[in-house]
Amino acid sequence: MIQYDIQPTQNTKLEAELQQKIDMKTKPVGALGFLENIAHQTGLIQQTLSPEIKKPVIVVFAGDHGIAKKGEVNPFPQEVTSQMVYNFINGGAAINVFSRTNNADLKIVDAGVNHNFDTPHLIDCKIDYGTKNYQEESAMSAEQCEKALRKGGEIVEQAFKNGSNTIGFGEMGIANTSSASLLMSYFTGIPIEECVGAGTGLNSEGISKKREILTSVFNKHQPSSPLEALAMFGGFEIAMLCGAILKAAELKMIVLIDGFIVSSALLAARAMHPNCMDYCMFAHTSSEKGHESILSFLGVRPVLNLGLRLGEGTGAALCLPLLRSAVNFLNEMASFDSAGVSTKS
């Protein structure tokens, strides 16, 4: 098992100093709402009263899922995964637009797509041509799962070496909401039936069939550890996300968690190393069924609630301006003393 050294951000003295700095800005106490929480957490992550956002990166991991070949849980065919990867490479997807708009460096990773790509604009970390069908067997072997964890970490480490201290994650993979639902149920204890949603657009009949299939899968397998659960139910892109989150936390980076799929990877990461939560900011509440329950289970508040359910890391990219605003008010806004503004008597 890969070892990570993830330190908690708790620092009683710094926590008090950050709160004092926030409260003494020229505003009523608490007047900037959740931006104040973001500023406080950012300072703790970086262990400073003057945090910075440096060279933000969004990494999108793509992988295929064995269960998608049957088309029973997904309204779109498996081939859409590779087609969307080409769309990312060509700059035409929503995540391309939002990354450009918000000055984030976008990286696309082939974690295990059922397709051979021939392009220099893709990070090739392919573990295999999609996972196995977990209706019949484990989605991946323990060795494949550990390799995916390691590869995810290596990509983050390279971004860190290039000067980034802020990283957001996204994904692409037809049928990966099914994997996420199974992982959600395993790690939260919420009944699988309550974790299953429409994915890329199933109707009520399709959701009912998906729920029936995933209930059968969940009842068939009994993983005995977080790693075994990730290998049993996950996708290569989800396993790489898990490894990426853990490595980013180890490197004390700000980690922007996107929607339902990325949150399911976080559940696995949290089960392996609970301290990783200290470094995570939750970009948004997805409208995919189950995501709000994950956020509630974790006891966290997301930055945005826009009704998104696209994936790709779009929520992570969209919350970057608010993250920058929180850091900038902490560093640049005048205090009562510096501005010569009287406090209440």
Rank of each mutant, 00 (worst) to 15 (best):
L227N: 12
L227P: 08
L227I: 14
L227H: 13
E228P: 00
E228V: 00
A229S: 02
A229K: 01
A229N: 01
A229V: 01
A229L: 00
L230A: 06
L230C: 04
L230I: 00
M232H: 15
M232R: 15
M232P: 12
M232Y: 14
F233P: 00
F233M: 00
F233H: 01
F233K: 00
F233W: 02
G234Q: 04
G234H: 05
G234E: 05
G235K: 04
G235V: 05
G235C: 08
F236V: 03
F236A: 09
F236S: 09
F236L: 12
F236I: 03
E237L: 02
E237S: 05
I238H: 05
I238R: 05
I238D: 01
I238T: 00
I238P: 03
A239W: 11
A239L: 08
M240I: 01
L241Y: 12
L241A: 10
L241Q: 13
L241S: 09
C242R: 11
C242N: 11
C242W: 08
G243D: 11
G243I: 09
G243P: 11
A244H: 12
A244F: 13
A244Y: 09
I245D: 09
I245G: 08
I245H: 10
I245V: 13
L246M: 12
K247E: 15
A248N: 08
A248L: 10
A248K: 12
A248D: 09
A248E: 10
A249L: 12
A249D: 11
E250P: 06
L251M: 15
L251I: 13
L251Q: 15
K252Q: 15
K252G: 12
M253L: 08
I254M: 15
I254C: 14
I254F: 15
V255W: 11
L256W: 13
L256C: 14
I257R: 10
I257P: 06
I257W: 10
I257Q: 10
I257V: 13
D258I: 06
G259F: 12
G259T: 11
G259I: 03
I261R: 07
I261V: 11
V262R: 10
V262I: 14
S263P: 03
S263W: 06
S263R: 07
S264I: 00
A265G: 14
A265R: 08
A265P: 08
A265E: 07
L266C: 09
L267P: 02
L267V: 02
L267A: 02
A268T: 04
A268M: 03
A268K: 05
A269G: 07
A269E: 07
